[in-house]
Design a protein around this nucleic acid. Structure first.
Lengths: 227, 227
DNA sequence: AACATGGTTCGATCCTGATCGAACCATAAG
DNA sequence: CTTATGGTTCGATCAGGATCGAACCATGTT
């Protein structure tokens, strides 16, 4: 009716319990098959199929068929950003759907936000990088400084490779549990990958939670100090 | 069903055409009465009343009764942030609801994003402040530097007053037309107010568009240069 | 007091859209 | 080829919710 982009379409797509559950399940970053998503949302395959079709044509999901399976993933980092924004606002309302349990505690400590690290540990990573002078604000957004680039390369991040892609290196992402920004973008993604490669952390199956080993957490805290 | 904040409730509230139109109308920052909103959404007073009730109990709107009128406004800057996030994503989909017209052009150039400046001019303001070293990244988010504070005070912003409030001074806000960040927060709000007080710009009635006078725009460009 | 205007409540209607059963297609495994 | 599993299509059902007409309350104006 009025001017501007069609926000209703998007919001309505997210505003259905079944679809929202699917989307949240995909926030973990791993692609899931249609039946897995159906189970996740607690509905039958048929309805799931219909929902997935709508989500895909709405531009929220990307689909890849592999053999007789159909793997779904979020279409874009932008989609994850929208979901996090909604999560963030909903969290301020205090409208939690379930009581915070132990699993919730793990999520608050460290979880994967699409492909980068979020939660308490994610915030620590971000603030440490900022206060060390490794990240700075430029006219193009947040960028690693020269020292930051050197640090990242030394830590094992292939900055040359990341630079070739057109995706933004850094990206602020509002953390719904901490109400602070954490680091997204290709650098955030590469760092989480590196943590896993180093054996510091692993992603809990069927969940967004990320579990650090004791030695991994110690190394993490040493590498990313906070005053 | 699953863990996390209740995102469905919020999304479903936004995912109705009538309600979305009301919310977008309120993005202008000026509070509107129930009947004005009803007219804006193209529905009768009764249905508007029902919608407004839901939006309020959903935490998206704030209500203030004044005489026999009932003025509605967005509950919070957070709500505006969510809406902008949705607008931003919807814009990438290219799903515009109407063809871009002259009014749209004005909106792209300068518009009000809740209470701060957005659009081309908003981006210019932001990048100018950043490249002048007036804004920098800290562990607490984006903050004015010492030089930045001096500059803002000299420009007529009462920084002491802003510091007393608990609202964040600066806040990045994703601009849906430019796909870049612009400046929100109490500083962004104060700057827009200052532009209006100086007679540089005024808000177009019934719209989010902001119109700069020729001399105002010249002064703006001189005060906030971009290399 | 009479009237007008802003808003709400109630009830009835009506339609979109979520859901599932059943049948059907596609791919892989035996 | 037969069988199992992943996924879609079709049709029917059903519920929630958006909508409005009508009546009603509240506050201001003449």
């Amino acid at each position: 009716m009025k001017e501007g982009p069609d926000i209703v379409r998007i919001a309505a797509l997210i505003g259905d319990p079944a679809r929202a559950n699917m989307l949240l399940a995909l926030m973990g970053g791993t692609a899931l098959t249609a039946t897995e998503l159906a189970h996740e949302a607690g509905i039958t395959k048929q309805t799931a199929s219909a929902h997935l079709g709508k989500l895909e044509s709405g531009g929220l999901l990307r689909q890849r068929k592999q053999g007789r399976h159909r793997y779904f993933a979020l279409a874009d980092d932008d989609v994850a950003a929208v979901l996090e924004a909604l999560l963030g606002f909903a969290a301020t309302q205090g409208q939690l759907r379930t009581r915070p349990g132990p699993r919730d505690a793990a999520m608050r400590k460290a979880r994967v936000c699409y492909h980068h690290l979020a939660g308490e540990m994610g915030i620590r990573l971000y603030t440490s990088l900022v206060s060390s002078g490794y990240l700075a604000l430029t006219a193009d957004g947040i960028e690693p400084t020269e020292e930051g680039r050197r640090f990242l390369v030394a830590f094992g991040v292939d900055m040359a490779e990341l630079g070739r892609k057109k995706a933004p290196l850094c990206r602020e992402c509002l953390d719904w549990s901490e109400r602070r920004s954490h680091l997204g973008g290709s650098v955030g993604r590469a760092l989480l990958q590196r943590f896993q490669d180093l054996g510091w952390a692993r992603q809990v199956a069927q969940s967004r939670a990320v579990l650090f080993s004791p030695s991994g957490e110690a190394a993490f805290r040493k590498t990313f100090p906070v005053d």
